[in-house]
Design a binder for these strands. Structure first.
Length: 274
DNA sequence: CTAAATACCTGATGGC
DNA sequence: TGCCATCAGGTATTTA
């Protein structure tokens, strides 16, 4: 599911858990890419959630002395139930359950198990990403001159470039194609060939599509769910992603699908010509 | 150092 | 109906 808008939607939907104290948990299935931090979580029993948080595509439950991260991988869902009475039956890939003293329950489901459950000491710490993460797209630190300077240093095609979390976090395969379409920039264009005007334009469109995605509750292609189980809406606003062969909404030219860095890219070869 | 390829895992879909 | 190949929101690790 999860690019920035989907993770932000999940994080916001988990807000009602703030103030609830952890009562216990069950790991129905372990054997993830990283082991579930059972000892760290056990140490939090009796302690309250103080906030919910997001950094890049990592959502977290914040405790007084650390963060429980639940990265959603490609197919993860985090569901919040207000009462342990009349809980729906456990589903096949509900792998972890958190129980709270007030009866609330959080279930982490992940069919493909590309997700990661991890603990870091200190609230609002950086997530356990393997590489140092770049700036948040909505952070004023990520401005036009910073972005342009980054662009000028690499010849990587712009589409995989903006998906690189070292450059800016949160942009995944859907929103990268959508932002480039709005900016009328070819996904194949080398990063260092963008002008200052292109950079400012693209930065604005990235922010625009991410904000619109959040407003729409994220894009549900298959797995994305809000914390209350509802699907997102923003897939209905996609202009190019998944639209291969369909007419461009601007000029009518059929949308083309190509592969870049092993990922599908969709674009209008007319509006987004080199 | 960068950049590209591969691996991780389950399930849906389409061709034959 | 079955079997095989391909593809899917991401990222950590390996290979060049």
């Amino acid at each position: 599911m999860p690019e920035l808008p989907e993770v932000e939607t999940v994080k916001n939907g988990l807000k009602p858990i703030i103030g609830s104290k952890l009562k216990g948990f069950i790991v129905h299935k372990d054997g993830w890419r990283k082991p579930v931090p059972v000892d760290k979580l056990t140490a939090q029993i009796g302690k309250p959630i103080t906030d919910t948080y997001r950094r890049a595509k990592w959502p977290a439950l914040v405790f007084e002395d650390g963060c429980l991260w639940m990265h959603l991988g490609m197919s993860g869902q985090i569901r919040l139930f207000n009462s342990d009475k009349n809980l729906p039956p456990l589903e096949k890939h509900d792998h972890i359950e958190l129980f709270f003293e007030d009866g609330k329950v959080i279930r982490f489901k992940d069919e493909r198990r590309f997700g990661i459950v991890a603990w870091t000491d200190h609230p609002y710490s950086e997530p356990p990403s393997s590489e140092k993460l770049g700036p948040e797209p909505f952070d004023p630190e990520w401005d036009d001159s910073y972005f342009y300077k980054q662009l000028s240093q690499y010849k990587t095609p712009i589409k995989p470039f903006i998906m690189n979390a070292k450059i800016v976090v949160g942009v995944g395969n859907i929103y990268a194609s959508e932002a480039l379409f709005l900016a009328r920039i070819s996904p194949l264009k080398p990063a260092n060939t963008l002008t200052k005007h292109d950079a400012a334009n693209l930065r604005g469109k990235i922010i625009q599509v991410l904000q619109a995605g959040i407003k729409g509750g994220g894009s549900t292609l298959k797995d994305h769910r809000m914390a209350n189980g509802e699907i997102g809406d923003y897939q209905n606003s996609h202009t190019v992603y998944g639209k291969e062969g369909r007419p461009c909404v601007v000029c009518g030219t059929p949308i083309v699908k190509i592969t870049q860095a092993t990922r599908s890219t969709f674009y209008c070869p007319s509006c987004q010509s080199d």
